[in-house]
Structures are given as C-alpha cells and as structure tokens.
Amino acid sequence: MDDTSRQIRFTLNGRPVTARVESHLDLVDLLRRFDLFGARESCGQGLCGCCTVLVDGVAVSGCLTLAQLVDGRSVTTVESLDEGGALSPVQQAFIDEGAFQCGFCTPGFVMMTHELLKENPDPDEAAIRDYLAGNLCRCAAYPEIIRAVQTAATRMKTAQAA
C-alpha cells in the first residue's frame, strides 16, 4: 500500500492543530486521535447524526467526511460547548427535559439543535421535526427532545432580551 498520508493543519475547537492523515481516514476517526469521542460513528451512513460536527461552522456527518479535506478549515465538536465549564443552554435544556436515555445520540442532537436555533431562534414543532429528521434516537426520546429544543429556544430568547 502506497503512503497516501499527508500532514494537515486545521483549527480544532478554536486551537490550531496538525495531524498526519491517511487519505482514507474519516473525520470521526481523526477526532478520536485527539481523544474527542463526542462525535461517534453508529450507522456509518450519515443517517443517524451521532457523528455530527461543524466544519467551518456548518453541520456535517463526520463519518462521511474525509479527514484530509479539513486541511486549513475549522472543526468544532460537542466538546467545545462547555469549554468554559458551564453547560450551553441547549445542553441544560436536554437535562431538564430528560431528553435522552443511553446518551449515544445526544451530542449529535445537541449540536443540531444549536444549529437550528442559530438559523431559527423560534422554531415551531414542525420546524423542529424537519430539522432533526436526520438524527435518530433508538431510545426514542423524541417527545422529550422536542420539548428540550423548545425550552432552550425560550431560555435563549429570554437571555437575549435581558
């Protein structure tokens, strides 16, 4: 097998990093090398959302992203949300509404909810369902997830107004 690896530089949760990366490596496996396990491969087909991360501020499925292609870009994972020690309003709302059971899909839902509320700070239930339709929860905490998104939206609006 030829050596198809290459040195890449990118920004990871705000910090510049470098890595030697094989051409076939995907972004989830690259993040594992940085001990970041919040994005995780489950279905391996971009359908469950467990591997959601942001690349240049846009949500992508890490399992469908070639690691070499994040060269020069900015990658943000769920671990960035509480870097200051405090939970994000979305994370807190997920806890308060009990919006998970096993927790394996939760980082993906949390990341997608942040993206939804960035685009649409006041989503109705239909908009929540449409936006989160690409994330699967086998424990089926969907009713609680919808409530968590609504709670987070309300709190974020209130905080904004204050």
């Binding site: 971009g46 846009v58 949500a59 992508v60 993206e115």
Partner: peptide, 12 residues
C-alpha cells in the same frame, strides 16, 4: 428541500 435527505447532507 425541507424533506430531502437531511440538513447535514444538504450542507455538503
């Protein structure tokens, strides 16, 4: 588009 694949796919 609203019901096409999912947000992450549509993003890329």
């Amino acid at each position: 588009m609203k019901r096409l694949a999912n947000v992450r796919v549509r993003n890329v």
